[in-house]
Every structure is written in structure tokens, then in C-alpha cells.
């Protein structure tokens, strides 16, 4: 399962890059907001939206990182089964495919859920009082 080892390494690298992007994008916007607050600059809708986009970016990348983590676990289970009993390989491959499909479905759901008003169906969302 050398191929899976390579994929696992690549996925780990992607996770690492995504975590760096979360940190850098947050840091850059915090620097901007600190400058605005220090200089008593008034916030307008565009700046407010930009600051909130960072939250959406973080949630989206965190969700994909969770999906990657789930993929890695499913691959590890498959590799373990394959190494211990090659006869189980075919069955394990089916289970792996199912797990990956579930992971993809969950990741797509989170992409939609965490988009806020950027999702077309939520663009006109107003504040709702109960």
C-alpha cells in the first residue's frame, strides 16, 4: 500500500497548508481591523463583510480538513485490513468507497451550511426575530 502512504502524505501536506492559510488570513484581517480601531476609522458594510468572510474561510477550510482527516482514517483502516488478510481486500475496498462517499457528502453539506449569505439560496436572508 505504498500508494496510500503517498496519498496520506499529500493529504497531510494539504491540511498543513490549509491551517497556514487560516492563520495568515485571520492575521492579515486582524491587522487591518487593529489599524482601523487605533485610528478611529468607521467601519462600512464592505469592510464588515470582509472581516466576516474570514470566519467563513476558516469554517470552510476547517470542514475540508475534517473531511481529509476522515479520509485518512478510512484509508488507514483499509490498509490495516489489507495487510492482515488480503482476502479481505475486496470487501475492505467496498467499505472504503462507502466511507469516502459519506465523507464527501458531509463535506458538501458543510460547504453549503457554512457559506452564510454567500450561498445563493441565502443571499436575501434578513434578520429573523422569533
Amino acid at each position: 500500500m505504498i500508494m496510500f502512504d503517498s496519498i496520506e502524505e499529500l493529504l497531510t501536506h494539504i491540511q498543513s497548508v490549509q491551517l497556514d492559510v487560516i492563520e495568515l488570513s485571520g492575521d492579515s484581517l486582524l491587522k487591518m481591523s487593529a489599524f482601523m480601531e487605533e485610528n478611529s476609522l468607521e467601519i462600512d458594510e464592505n469592510i464588515s463583510t470582509a472581516l466576516q468572510y474570514q470566519d467563513i474561510i476558516t469554517q470552510q477550510l476547517t470542514a475540508t480538513n475534517e473531511a481529509i482527516e476522515s479520509m485518512k482514517k478510512s484509508m488507514a483502516v483499509f490498509t490495516h485490513a489489507y495487510k492482515n488478510d488480503e482476502g479481505l481486500a475486496a470487501e475492505s475496498m467496498v467499505k472504503l468507497q462507502e466511507k469516502l462517499s459519506d465523507t464527501l457528502a458531509e463535506a458538501r453539506d458543510k460547504k453549503s451550511r457554512f457559506s452564510g449569505k454567500n450561498a445563493p439560496e441565502q443571499a436575501d436572508e434578513e434578520i429573523e426575530f422569533f
Binding site: E45, G116, I127
Partner: peptide, 17 residues
């Protein structure tokens, strides 16, 4: 809960709320 606001919020709407 009193109400629900979806991000990104509009600053004026948040103030009004």
C-alpha cells in the same frame, strides 16, 4: 432564542436589531 442573524451581517441591520 430571540432572533437569528446570518453572516455576513449588514452593520446597519445589526445596529437596528
Amino acid at each position: 432564542l430571540t432572533g437569528w442573524i446570518v453572516k455576513p451581517f449588514n452593520p446597519q441591520q445589526l445596529k437596528q436589531a
